[in-house]
Write a protein that binds this DNA or RNA. Sequence first.
DNA 1: TGGCTTTGTCATCACCCGTTGACAAGCGAA
DNA 2: TTCGCTTGTCAACGGGTGATGACAAAGCCA
Lengths: 189, 189
Amino acid sequence: MFCHVAPRPRNAEATRAAILAAARERFARESYDDVGMRDIAGDVGVDAALVSRYFGSKEELFLTVLDSCANGRDLMDGERADFGRRVARDVIFEGGGEGKLKKLLIMLRSIGSAKAMELVQRTGSESFFDPFAAWIGGEDGAVRARLAAATIMGMAVSREITAGFGLTPAECERLADRMALILQNIIDN
Amino acid sequence: MFCHVAPRPRNAEATRAAILAAARERFARESYDDVGMRDIAGDVGVDAALVSRYFGSKEELFLTVLDSCANGRDLMDGERADFGRRVARDVIFEGGGEGKLKKLLIMLRSIGSAKAMELVQRTGSESFFDPFAAWIGGEDGAVRARLAAATIMGMAVSREITAGFGLTPAECERLADRMALILQNIIDN
DNA sequence: TGGCTTTGTCATCACCCGTTGACAAGCGAA
DNA sequence: TTCGCTTGTCAACGGGTGATGACAAAGCCA
């Protein structure tokens, strides 16, 4: 019995897109340093050399991934009055990786690598914080954007370094409720 | 003219302590992966091999550093009514590295390395979150401890990935005020 | 002074990483 | 079919890492 893996069709554009998508998932879940070119290539079923060739270098790939992510504005579609609750539940119960928080997660993980952080610093402000601040609007929009982003990222960190908070499900519910309140309050005034 | 660096006196105990201190500073400011044995050794003026010999391995050194840090309780000496303001200003204006937040910073940076995170997960709860929760006390102490820690870590992350928030000094003041309020509110009820 | 233990250094190893250029395979056009 | 371009693979390189064991130097004790 011969088992063949279905070979990837020869299609540069599709392959490039698949690599980009795989890289986005990786970078959202592991730090820049922990993600290897060989890992990404393996996810797609391709040789690592191809990744280098299509994207030039790991740094350029990382930047392309950042660009490809939903930017700050997409965090906020949906009811504004529901923002706190929505985001709190996403980050606490899902880890944020599925939704619009992906870019925030990737930025967060950049503190693990001096190289990645420099890249994030260059692009993070205009692509994330500025639109976010504009959406929040009002007095001190920029300040409140930093505050909200910090709250979200902090909870994401806390979730990971305690392996799911180490709380009971009921406590997680109350954690989500409290966080929702805080976030909504930041947004509202 | 001969310029000699004062040679470190031959004293195993003092050298070991110096290495530990240097490692603590490094790990509080850079991620586990970015800190090299040669960096730490260089700070002390010693060969990298000595670090390995005194602490066994990088992992063991990291664990020893975590132990050597002020634990959760030390975060909270000082007026309880002043907690929010004190911590907010420390993290926003100083980056937290000088004070009692060092352990939190090190834990935070562990998200940059799968290896470091596993170590932090094993020791973080009983050495940090549990005492912190006990100090907070009252209903939902554990939940509120996670919330406060997340707020602090998030602000530390935000500060770094935006290279000092990118805010005016006046805005930073208002950021600190708002954060102080939130933190204090978490502590109080 | 001579010898022994402690303290520190040096050269080196094996490993993993991103990257590169040479090569193979697919596939459409002539 | 045969040529030629595109798409993908392979083996290798240079650089950096943590770790190791042999060696040098310093201090102490007799």
